[in-house]
Design a protein around this nucleic acid. Sequence first.
DNA 1: TGATTATACCTAGATATACGATGCATCCAC
DNA 2: GTGGATGCATCGTATATCTAGGTATAATCA
Lengths: 111, 111
Amino acid sequence: MTINKELMKGSTVILILTLLDRKPMYGYEMSKEMEKSSSGVLTLKEGTLYPILHTLESDGMVESYWSSGEGERKRKYYQITKKGQGLLKEKQREWISFRTAVDQVLGGGPA
Amino acid sequence: MTINKELMKGSTVILILTLLDRKPMYGYEMSKEMEKSSSGVLTLKEGTLYPILHTLESDGMVESYWSSGEGERKRKYYQITKKGQGLLKEKQREWISFRTAVDQVLGGGPA
DNA sequence: TGATTATACCTAGATATACGATGCATCCAC
DNA sequence: GTGGATGCATCGTATATCTAGGTATAATCA
């Protein structure tokens, strides 16, 4: 089951920051992890992911470095910064507020 | 408090249909009611609302009629159709699924 | 009476965002 | 050595929403 993509808008950033708040990850990994973490409901396409990562990096929300493990294939890891954690907290509050409001309207019942 | 507008995308249709599922309403009324129903968190701008209503109408999800009360100002009322109620049910399921998935990712904790 | 405000409808253009398509390179299994 | 999975990335397109504006009527108040 895949969600109407429009619903995803506005929530991708918080989802990405949440993944990175657990541990540094590389893009491809994040894409797979998102699907796993959400039981296959949410997908994070690469065409969506990379532009957002680059924006977050230029805004100082995440930092990146290339992996240097010997014999390993090169991977670009992203990790969240202090500033990014602040943004995450803010977005978490926003999500709760939004979710609550929608549920409130949906559950309002006949007037 | 106003929500990041991007979060709204994808959920406006379900919110509009929900309001109309309670009773027929006119545009301006819906705009005000949305704010009230969500405790001021969600706003439904007219520039957003009317195009959506027109689309829903041409898709047979809602029907409209002009009010004819004597001495009353003219208002265009919208009411939900059977087909619209079907769409609403579908979108409700979708919302639950989406909300659950996001909460699941956010609440995942450190890996 | 005249001016201001709230109500009530609507459209056009700008903007934002996600996705599909695509490209390139590396690594592993057969 | 070929194919498929991995891994990074960009570009064009589609679509939803907002800002800003336009029109008109009713109510309120000086």
